[in-house]
């Protein structure tokens, strides 16, 4: 079948006596949505940060399209983050520039990959505001005036405008009201399918993982305790921890 976009093997990282990553391996293929689920402190966000080069592991290897991510100079990693990768933070304030207009937040990413024509950038920003269901009339407002859900949608537009191949998402619906979460999840689902993105999403929301992910990894105490096809892991969980996780969800 296809070769993986990203591959990691034997990842180890300790914080003092705590193993945040304990011999973790993961593959992500083009167009594949992979969810990492697990409780707080299971190591899932650490894994995301290591894979995206934000944090160095004590041991292990990470490759992206054949390139060694850990050996990559910082400038090359930053270039990847501007072009082929995207990172959606849990708190949109970490992914947006709050003093810059909504249109500017989107246009800035385009300019970072070489776009120069003002009219084209503005047209593309308008298009992306519509795609994330923000009224283009808000183009010149600063994101500080937006609701939390709007800020998160703006962050997603900013990340996706450069058509990355691989997007890392850290609890993208984490801080939002339930009614806002559903809209955002549906939006992410549609955009990911339309653009054929590979996504690695960290979440503790099992329903979100079921909706979005093709494959699931369950983490506990720094280890991947179970992985596989999303519906098989959730409907026929094998590991005691996965059984606990799945049975703890209240059906609405």
């Amino acid at each position: 079948m296809s070769t993986p976009l990203m591959e990691a093997r034997g990842l180890q990282l300790r914080f003092g006596r705590v193993a945040a990553l304990d011999d973790v391996a993961i593959d992500i293929h083009p167009g594949e949505v992979v969810a990492i689920v697990g409780e707080s402190g299971s190591g899932k966000t650490t894994l995301l940060r290591v894979l995206s080069g934000l944090m160095r592991p004590d041991a292990g290897a990470v490759t992206y399209r054949g390139q060694d991510v850990l050996a990559m100079p910082e400038a090359a990693r930053r270039r990847l983050m501007r072009t082929e990768w995207g990172f959606v933070h849990q708190n949109p304030r970490d992914g947006l520039r709050l003093g810059v207009t909504a249109g500017g937040n989107i246009g800035e990413r385009l300019m970072a990959v070489g776009a120069r024509h003002y009219g084209n950038i503005r047209a593309e920003a308008t298009e992306w505001l519509k795609r994330v269901e923000i009224d283009p009339a808000r183009m010149d407002d600063i994101p500080g005036k937006f609701s939390g859900g709007m800020q998160q949608r703006l962050q997603i537009a900013r990340v996706l405008v450069t058509r990355p191949r691989l997007v890392f998402m850290d609890e993208p619906t984490g801080g939002l009201d339930v009614s806002v979460q559903a809209r955002l999840l549906d939006l992410i689902r549609a955009l990911v399918a339309d653009l054929g993105l590979a996504v690695l999403i960290v979440t503790h929301d099992i329903a979100a993982a079921r909706l979005l992910a093709h494959r699931i990894l369950v983490m506990r105490q720094g280890q991947v305790v179970e992985e596989g096809l999303t519906d098989r892991v959730l409907d026929d969980p094998q590991h005691a921890y996965t059984q606990l996780l799945v049975s703890s969800v209240l059906a609405a």
Partner: peptide, 11 residues
């Protein structure tokens, strides 16, 4: 063999 197929193949 669906019982042992990789998740991507099952999809």
């Amino acid at each position: 063999d669906l019982a042992t197929a990789d998740p991507r193949l099952v999809r």
